[in-house]
Simulated scan of single mutants.
Amino acid sequence: MEKDCLNYIQYKGKPVKASRLFSGHEYDVGIKAIAEKYGEDVIKYRNISYDTDLEGEDIIAYFELMHNLVAKQKIATALVLKNSPVKRIFVDGGFSKNAVFMNLLAKAFPDVEVYAASMAQATALGTALAIHNSWNTKSDIPSDLINLKYYSATKSAG
């Protein structure tokens, strides 16, 4: 488990590399500290746009927090992507709704397509869909089950 990396076994028996990085807690602590320092409610930072003017020390601090989280994510993800043909990154959960995080992540990986999933447990659903034919032979998978939002390294989104 060098640098907190490990391998899982996919359903077909092939190893899948994973890097464990739990940024949610660090984000929560950082947002709380920023809100307390600047006398704001943490809700203020919930839907900050990537295109927000960096006015106000609290907004600058918020973007600094996000840059730090993405820098850690880049290191963790690079460990997994090393020598692999991966061309897409899919993000689900809380960070998939964070436009600042998603845009910074796309810029951190300019040669990889970065997508945010519209649902919280998209990874679990994807796993179920991968073995869909073995547990559900009576129906097709709806094409609109998960909506994805593309983030580009060259243009900002949402």
Score class of each variant (00 low, 15 high):
residue 120 A to T: 13
residue 141 I to K: 09
residue 120 A to V: 15
residue 106 A to M: 03
residue 103 N to P: 04
residue 131 I to P: 05
residue 114 V to A: 02
residue 110 P to T: 09
residue 102 M to C: 05
residue 147 N to M: 07
residue 95 F to K: 06
residue 134 S to K: 10
residue 121 Q to T: 11
residue 137 T to F: 13
residue 139 S to G: 00
residue 131 I to V: 15
residue 108 A to L: 05
residue 115 Y to T: 00
residue 100 V to T: 06
residue 108 A to V: 04
residue 101 F to R: 01
residue 137 T to P: 02
residue 146 I to N: 04
residue 95 F to Y: 06
residue 100 V to P: 03
residue 118 S to P: 01
residue 111 D to P: 00
residue 146 I to F: 03
residue 96 S to L: 02
residue 144 D to Q: 11
residue 137 T to I: 12
residue 106 A to Q: 01
residue 146 I to C: 06
residue 134 S to V: 10
residue 141 I to H: 08
residue 114 V to L: 03
residue 100 V to S: 04
residue 106 A to L: 08
residue 116 A to P: 10
residue 118 S to I: 06
residue 136 N to E: 13
residue 112 V to I: 15
residue 104 L to R: 02
residue 133 N to P: 01
residue 115 Y to H: 10
residue 109 F to N: 02
residue 97 K to R: 15
residue 100 V to C: 02
residue 100 V to E: 03
residue 107 K to G: 04
residue 131 I to R: 07
residue 128 A to T: 13
residue 105 L to K: 08
residue 133 N to T: 14
residue 146 I to P: 02
residue 140 D to S: 08
residue 118 S to C: 10
residue 121 Q to M: 13
residue 99 A to W: 09
residue 95 F to M: 08
residue 101 F to H: 08
residue 95 F to A: 06
residue 111 D to Q: 14
residue 134 S to C: 08
residue 111 D to W: 01
residue 127 T to P: 00
residue 123 T to V: 15
residue 124 A to Q: 12
residue 119 M to D: 05
residue 97 K to A: 09
residue 144 D to H: 14
residue 96 S to I: 04
residue 101 F to V: 08
residue 146 I to W: 04
residue 115 Y to R: 00
residue 132 H to A: 11
residue 146 I to D: 06
residue 144 D to T: 10
residue 113 E to I: 08
residue 99 A to K: 15
residue 143 S to T: 11
residue 141 I to T: 07
residue 145 L to P: 04
residue 107 K to M: 13
residue 138 K to L: 07
residue 119 M to E: 08
residue 137 T to M: 10
residue 130 A to Q: 14
residue 129 L to M: 15
residue 124 A to C: 14
residue 125 L to W: 13
residue 115 Y to A: 00
residue 96 S to H: 01
residue 109 F to A: 05
residue 136 N to P: 04
residue 125 L to S: 03
residue 106 A to D: 00
residue 139 S to Y: 09
residue 117 A to L: 11
residue 108 A to P: 02
residue 145 L to D: 10
residue 139 S to P: 00
residue 102 M to W: 03
residue 135 W to I: 12
residue 130 A to W: 14
residue 115 Y to S: 01
residue 119 M to G: 06
residue 98 N to H: 05
residue 102 M to E: 01
residue 115 Y to E: 00
residue 106 A to G: 10
residue 96 S to T: 04
residue 120 A to W: 09
residue 113 E to H: 10
residue 101 F to P: 01
residue 121 Q to P: 07
residue 137 T to D: 12
residue 117 A to T: 11
residue 120 A to Q: 13
residue 126 G to N: 11
residue 112 V to D: 05
residue 120 A to G: 00
residue 129 L to T: 13
residue 101 F to G: 03
residue 111 D to M: 03
residue 110 P to R: 10
residue 124 A to I: 12
residue 94 G to L: 09
residue 138 K to R: 11
residue 117 A to K: 03
residue 139 S to K: 09
residue 147 N to R: 06
residue 132 H to L: 11
residue 134 S to N: 07
residue 120 A to P: 12
